[in-house]
Amino acid sequence: MRGYLLHRLVLGLVQLALLAGLVFALTSLLPGDAAAVRYDGDATGAQVAALREQLGLDRPALERFTDWAGGVLTGDLGTSLVSGGPVTGILAESAGPTLVLTAVTLVVVVPLALLLGLASGTREGGRTDRVFSSLTLALNAVPDFLLALLLVAGLSLKLGWLPATWVGVGAGELLGQPALLVLPVAVVAARMICLLSRQIRAGTVTTLGAGYVVQARRLGVPRRALLLRHVLPNAAVPGIQELARVGDNLVGGVLVVEAVFAIPGVATALVRAVEARDIPTVQGLALVVAAAALLFSLAADLVCHRLVPRTEILR
């Protein structure tokens, strides 16, 4: 286990380093820079050049990147070219809604996926199995942004049941208005529930046909105990493996939903940073989001290994 954990951590650090370089290169290719965007064409070339020098944008790109990377090693994500404050401050202000949305989504996804997967797997070929399979296949084919627009148009604009956006609502007011979470969580959770429940269904069907389960049935083990103690731990493994694989989709889906519903989270801060050509902020936020996705994937793999110790997932 220690060797596996060390292997994954080293691989993750290499991936983060490559991502940081790629993000810096791509943002550097954007037209204009923070100085030009700030003046928006209302300044002379001399004024733009002076501001560029003040922000350090006249320095070679490699030098700016190495300075930023050196700061990251000490926990410093850099300084915003727009606000002049630390990027960690921007992250602290925007991370709250994103973390709440992600946590609530997982709380909804995991039990529902287990329930649907077990219900379908224990009734293989039956009406329940066919209905659930049809619904998950159809829902999985709908893109997140399209599903978000359909829910907003139907449940918010037409019926008026739920709020359509978070515009005018601060992050601190979230717990007092849980209705704000319903549509965003539904959009993010829909695809994940479809993917995970199908994997759990497949694991349930396979486990129910295993010799030890057949023998337990012959010995008269109660159905509830059979499912919870013997079937579920092994049937859940494919679902957890799928959860590890779609961890980046969870993070990416949250960011898309934040943009659609105007949620003041990390995605909003990232979009504003790109628009302002605030490269240190873009790099810092992208690095944190990528690290979160990698840690999520690692945690899911470790849970898999704990449920089935013989399972080694060395990707």
Rank of each mutant, 00 (worst) to 15 (best):
H305F: 10
W68Y: 10
L73K: 06
I313C: 01
A190E: 12
L294T: 06
L18S: 11
A171E: 12
G45P: 01
A25S: 12
L11N: 09
V23G: 07
A138E: 03
V167S: 14
N140M: 10
D33G: 12
L29Y: 03
A34P: 02
A292D: 02
A262G: 07
L195I: 14
A216H: 04
L73G: 02
A292F: 12
F132C: 01
G78R: 09
E173P: 03
I200A: 06
H230Y: 15
S133F: 10
L159D: 04
V10N: 00
H230A: 08
A113C: 08
R224C: 04
V82S: 15
D144M: 04
S197G: 06
R38E: 12
T311M: 13
L139I: 02
L55N: 03
T268M: 12
L181Q: 07
V256Q: 06
G253C: 06
G172T: 09
V14W: 13
A103I: 11
D129F: 09
T74W: 11
L227G: 04
D33W: 01
A190N: 15
R191W: 11
L55D: 02
L91D: 03
V23C: 07
A179R: 14
V237P: 00
T136P: 02
S197Q: 14
L155W: 04
Q54Y: 02
G265R: 05
E173F: 08
F132E: 01
T79F: 02
G209L: 09
D58W: 01
V246S: 13
A17C: 10
T311E: 15
V289M: 14
A216W: 08
G71S: 11
G85C: 00
V10S: 10
T207G: 07
T44K: 05
L287D: 04
V107T: 11
G121N: 06
V152A: 08
L112I: 14
I240G: 01
L11T: 13
W166D: 07
D76T: 09
G170Q: 09
D58S: 10
L294E: 08
G85V: 11
V82D: 07
G3I: 05
G168R: 05
A292H: 01
R277P: 00
A171R: 14
G117F: 03
A210K: 04
V100K: 01
L19T: 05
L106K: 02
L62D: 10
K158A: 14
P309E: 10
L77P: 06
L250S: 08
A34N: 03
L116W: 04
